[in-house]
């Protein structure tokens, strides 16, 4: 993986831009004891200002568009954005809706995409590890 050491604990912020909760509960499942990415110090934080990684879900509802831009701006550099779920990547089943303005990469630069509806916790864990590699190289 090219990862020499775990130089720092990653803190993630979870951003819901209009998702169906499917990905959101899988993110929580990844953090809780079965999958337990907290053992690497990866922690969900309450404020984007404390985060290194933005875990963004959902196909971007119209009212959330300006808010996700503001939240992205609040995350300090260096930062990585992970789009969790198919709808964050390309709209998913909601692709033709009048009320959506996504996908996510139209508003914020996305580094890692996790496909799946919803993706399994293992896939989310892998994405966070990829984000870690990216941050360490930065």
């Amino acid at each position: 993986m090219g990862l020499n050491s775990f130089k720092r604990a990653l803190w993630v912020y979870h951003l819901n831009s209009g998702s169906c909760n499917g990905c959101d509960i899988e993110i929580l499942a990844a953090l809780t004891p079965r999958y337990d990415i907290e053992r690497f110090g990866i922690m969900l934080v309450g404020s984007p200002r404390h985060a290194d990684v933005l875990l963004a879900t959902g196909p971007v509802a119209r009212q959330m568009a300006s808010r996700i831009k503001r939240i992205y701006a609040q995350v300090p550099d260096p930062k990585v954005v992970i789009a969790v779920g198919s709808c964050g990547a390309e709209g998913g089943v909601f692709y033709e809706s009048y009320s959506l303005v996504g996908p996510l990469d139209q508003f914020i630069p996305v580094d890692i995409y996790v496909p799946g509806c919803p993706p399994r916790p293992e896939a989310i864990t892998e994405a966070v590890i990829k984000a870690w590699v990216k941050l360490e190289k930065a």
Binding site: Q63, M64, F94
Partner: peptide, 14 residues
């Protein structure tokens, strides 16, 4: 409410 409206019913009818 209304922040995460996705137009599900409209989608379902289309």
């Amino acid at each position: 409410v209304g922040q995460v409206h996705r137009g599900m019913e409209w989608l379902g009818m289309n």
